[in-house]
Simulated scan of single mutants.
Amino acid sequence: MWARHQWVGQAHTDAEYRAYGTLLRENRITDVYFHAGPVEADGTVPPALYPNAAKLVAAMRTYAPGVRMQAYLGQIREVSGHGIIQLNDPAVREQILKTDQIFLDLGFDGIHYDFEPIYPDDKAFLELLDQTRRLTEPRGKLLSLALEQKTLLDASQPFYKALLPRAGKYHYPPRPTADFLRKVADRADQVAIMTYDVSLPTESLAGWHYARHTEWTLRLIGDRTTVFMGVPTYRPNMDWAEDLTVALRGVRRGIDALDRPPAKPWGVGVYADWTTNPSEWASYRANWLPRESAKVGG
């Protein structure tokens, strides 16, 4: 589950921590990506943004033991003069690693990256993953990341790139190809696919979207890394058909289409804690939890 910044940025009472821990346990959430950024252009995060991080970690150790807490760090990539952070600058990547170290020292169980957009020829992003893995792995910590859903047809990417070059604010779709997704999976402990925001007008189409991307993704990388398929707990603009129930049913259809379960753990990623109301948590438990084993993530 992706969690809002206020957990690291603001003070909370013991009762609030206790209630949050109960929510995580009741819904069998295995990993929480606590927003700890955004990362500045130079790769730093000002300490004033996370004064409550250490207290959060200590409280969750008490009230949600076993739940992995990860520092969620991200920023808009600079592309063709637009965006904020230059990942292809080695000095910026080095500073990001120092920022990672700060959060690991505070007690977080891992680092979760959400840099956007990421294109399938992004060597700088792969290098950042390699560098981060060398930091996290010896410490027994996790490296996870959020990534857009796979392109529908890999062969279409060169045509999109030619027709929609990276000029101005418009670019060809930043969707991973199968090859790029495998490269990412080989470098990360967890990959969370941002399958939401599909903007489809009917439940059948939205469900098909979740089913197909779940099947494709798990076939591609389910034996390489833990996969979470992102599901929304909000209603997109224009009241499209996508919602939590539609997404969960679609994910389950995608799983059922597999010849066998993936070798690595898999599950859904709830986006987000600040948009999920009690009725949606009830829907999550009814549509997801009963058939899942303890191996499956939240």
Results as ranks from 00 to 15, higher is better:
M1A: 07
W7I: 03
V8G: 00
A11W: 05
T13S: 15
D14K: 13
E16K: 11
Y17D: 01
T22K: 15
L24H: 04
V32L: 09
F34V: 15
A36F: 00
P38W: 11
T44N: 00
P46R: 11
P47D: 08
A48H: 11
Y50H: 15
Y50C: 07
A53I: 08
A54V: 15
L56R: 03
L56G: 01
V57P: 01
A58F: 07
M60R: 03
T62M: 01
Y63H: 13
A64I: 12
A64G: 10
A71F: 10
R77Q: 11
R77D: 02
E78V: 11
G83C: 09
I85Y: 00
L87M: 09
L87E: 06
D89K: 12
P90Q: 05
V92E: 02
Q95H: 14
D100Y: 15
I102E: 04
I102Y: 02
F103D: 03
F103N: 04
L104E: 02
D105P: 03
D105Q: 14
G107P: 01
F108N: 02
I111P: 04
H112V: 04
F115L: 05
P120A: 01
D122M: 05
K123V: 14
F125N: 00
F125A: 00
L129T: 05
Q131N: 03
T132L: 01
T132N: 02
P138W: 09
P138H: 11
R139T: 03
G140L: 05
L142P: 03
A146E: 06
K150Q: 10
L152Q: 07
L153E: 10
D154Y: 10
A155Q: 14
S156D: 06
Q157C: 09
A162S: 10
L163E: 12
L164K: 13
H171D: 09
H171M: 04
Y172R: 02
A178S: 13
D179V: 15
R182T: 13
K183N: 09
D186W: 12
D189K: 12
D189V: 08
A192Q: 09
I193Y: 03
T195G: 12
Y196C: 06
Y196P: 02
Y196V: 07
V198M: 14
L200G: 08
S204L: 14
H209F: 13
A211F: 03
T214V: 11
T214D: 01
R219F: 06
R219A: 04
T225M: 07
T226W: 05
G230L: 08
T233R: 03
M238G: 04
D239W: 02
L244W: 10
G250D: 06
V251C: 06
V251D: 00
R253D: 13
G254F: 07
I255N: 08
I255D: 06
D256G: 06
L258T: 05
D259P: 00
R260A: 11
P262E: 09
P262I: 13
A263R: 14
G267T: 03
V268G: 07
V270G: 02
Y271T: 08
W274H: 15
T275R: 06
T276L: 08
N277L: 05
S279P: 00
E280P: 00
W281H: 07
S283R: 14
A286H: 06
P290I: 12
R291T: 15
S293R: 14
A294M: 12
V296L: 07
